Simulated assay, not measured.
Amino acid sequence: TLLPSSSEVVLVTMISQAKANLWLLWLAATSGNVLGSCVNYWLGTHVLRFKHKNWFPVSAKGLEKAQSQFKKYGVYSLLFAWLP
């Protein structure tokens, strides 16, 4: 994301007020980030099996465009994937 979300604000607030053990805060934040990355990776590897469902958020044309850009530019096409 472009701006920090509420979880980072809560983490900084808790660190600045020393209301919890710093190592526990670090462990919770790191575990959450790693788990979120794992979930996103899993979703990315399994999402195409749902492309024929009515609720699938990307059109066939949009999916084809994204796949052709990835084939053309490879992993460099993901450089700005975090932008909205």
Rank of each mutant, 00 (worst) to 15 (best):
43 L>N: 06
23 W>E: 08
14 M>H: 11
22 L>E: 12
57 P>I: 05
5 S>A: 14
54 N>K: 12
84 P>H: 09
45 T>I: 10
60 A>L: 00
33 N>P: 00
77 S>K: 05
45 T>K: 10
31 S>H: 11
63 L>G: 07
25 L>P: 02
58 V>R: 00
42 W>K: 07
9 V>D: 13
75 V>A: 13
8 E>D: 11
8 E>V: 06
5 S>C: 04
54 N>E: 13
40 N>L: 15
55 W>F: 12
30 T>L: 12
6 S>P: 02
72 K>D: 00
41 Y>A: 14
82 W>K: 06
42 W>R: 07
49 R>A: 12
70 F>M: 02
67 Q>Y: 01
79 L>I: 01
12 V>Y: 05
17 Q>H: 02
71 K>M: 10
43 L>M: 11
68 S>R: 15
55 W>I: 01
70 F>K: 04
81 A>M: 02
11 L>D: 03
44 G>T: 04
5 S>Q: 13
64 E>Q: 02
32 G>T: 06
30 T>C: 13
17 Q>I: 06
52 H>P: 01
3 L>H: 05
58 V>A: 03
60 A>F: 01
16 S>I: 06
83 L>V: 07
29 A>R: 02
52 H>M: 09
49 R>K: 15
75 V>G: 07
24 L>P: 05
36 G>D: 09
53 K>A: 14
80 F>M: 08
48 L>V: 01
79 L>M: 11
38 C>T: 14
47 V>I: 10
65 K>N: 08
76 Y>D: 07
9 V>N: 06
73 Y>T: 05
30 T>Y: 02
75 V>I: 15
2 L>M: 12
55 W>Y: 05
35 L>S: 14
48 L>F: 10
19 K>H: 14
33 N>W: 12
28 A>C: 09
30 T>A: 11
19 K>A: 12
18 A>Y: 08
19 K>I: 12
71 K>D: 12
48 L>C: 05
62 G>Y: 04
62 G>V: 05
84 P>F: 05
73 Y>N: 10
79 L>W: 00
54 N>G: 13
40 N>A: 15
73 Y>D: 14
20 A>P: 07
50 F>Y: 15
41 Y>P: 03
51 K>L: 00
42 W>P: 02
11 L>I: 08
27 L>C: 13
60 A>I: 00
71 K>V: 02
36 G>Y: 11
1 T>Q: 14
23 W>R: 13
84 P>L: 03
6 S>V: 12
63 L>E: 01
25 L>K: 01
12 V>I: 09
57 P>L: 04
75 V>N: 10
16 S>M: 11
65 K>G: 04
24 L>G: 06
3 L>N: 07
4 P>R: 02
51 K>N: 04
49 R>L: 09
21 N>E: 11
65 K>C: 05
38 C>Y: 08
18 A>S: 15
33 N>D: 12
64 E>C: 06
28 A>R: 01
14 M>S: 10
13 T>P: 04
27 L>T: 13
27 L>E: 11
57 P>G: 03
